[in-house]
Design a protein around this nucleic acid. Structure first.
Length: 291
DNA sequence: ACCCAGGCGGGCG
DNA sequence: CGCCCGCATGGG
């Protein structure tokens, strides 16, 4: 059991983050459960009430209890002081409402390659379909973990996806993203998932990712934020763009560049957190929905 | 049927 | 640079 403050597991896992795409959600009595693959096994979390919570967990495979515990601790950033994050991003009434509505939602930290795959698939796509594509890719090309009668597939490795024929990828419903998936898989296989991106200066790290065919401004920021824990990354998808334009620019269209510099000025080094609250609260409120 | 989706690359001015 | 276009697919 792990005690945590300011943590809502369900919100953190379901708010369009990587766990939304390769995690499995369920119920255990009155509790929500989340299962996700890790190494050669998987972890299952039992979600208690938020925002101050107790995390119960089980794990299967060759990992130890200590490793499972550490995975959960790192994945949900339990060492991070959310009070100070909220102090930085609670800049106005909209953010105050977002934080009240979504208290405990964290930026999860996932494996870089799994994150890269999820957000490569995400482009010009919707959350439900991204889930389906990732799950079909995992079933066909991932490693099966079959423990105690429960089957779960791991996310396929970049090495495997590097050599899969494009038509086989497309058979999983990837559409035109097939060649991007291959390109990103090859880059991650060749560079051992870019371990230097954890510490490289943000601009430099982003340029490295944008050099890969299939990764642009938005996907690069998602990979840095959810894969490398770079909370200074501020991914701008169409929702974030519309919400920021509506709330902070009187509905006037702004360039992506402008929104990046606005976010940096307003929310500083933890603007990735601001982005996640803008994104999810904006969507839930229907702000930015087309008329 | 029609519209949309956690965008990107290429081509144009 | 900035803008515009096509891109596959399935759910609402």
């Amino acid at each position: 059991m792990i005690r945590a403050r300011e943590l809502d597991i369900k919100l953190s896992a379901e708010s369009g983050q990587p766990l939304t795409f390769f995690g499995e959600f369920g119920r255990d009595g009155s509790r929500d459960t989340l299962s996700y693959p890790v190494e050669d096994g998987y972890i299952r979390i039992y979600a208690e009430s938020a925002p101050d919570t107790k995390i119960e967990y089980d794990f299967w495979g060759s990992i130890s209890s200590k490793e499972a515990r550490k995975d959960i601790y790192d994945r949900f950033s339990l060492g991070l002081d959310m009070k100070s994050v909220y102090a930085s991003i609670n800049t106005d009434e909209f953010m105050d409402n977002a934080i009240k509505a979504l208290r405990g939602m964290r930026i999860t930290r996932n494996q870089p390659w799994e994150t890269a795959l999820c957000f490569t698939v995400s482009q010009f796509n919707n959350i439900k379909r991204i889930r389906g594509i990732i799950s079909r890719l995992s079933e066909r090309f991932g490693e099966l973990r079959d423990v105690e009668g429960r089957r779960m597939y791991g996310v396929p490795s970049p090495d495997v996806l590097s050599d899969v024929p494009l038509r086989e990828l497309r058979r999983c419903g990837t559409g035109f993203r097939d060649r991007y998936i291959r390109s990103v898989a090859r880059a991650f296989a060749l560079n051992d998932s870019f371990p230097e991106l954890y510490r490289m200066p943000y601009d430099e790290a982003k340029s490295s990712l944008c050099a890969i065919d299939g990764i642009g401004d938005k996907v690069a920021d998602c990979i840095l934020l959810f894969g490398y824990g770079r909370v200074e990354a501020f991914p701008i998808d169409l929702w974030v763009k519309r919400v920021v334009e509506r709330i902070y620019f009187g509905g006037r269209k702004q360039r992506i560049r402008m929104i990046h510099s606005f976010a940096e000025d307003r929310w500083g080094a933890v603007r990735g957190y601001a982005q996640q609250y803008v994104f999810w609260h904006g969507r839930k409120m229907g702000i930015g929905k087309l008329d």
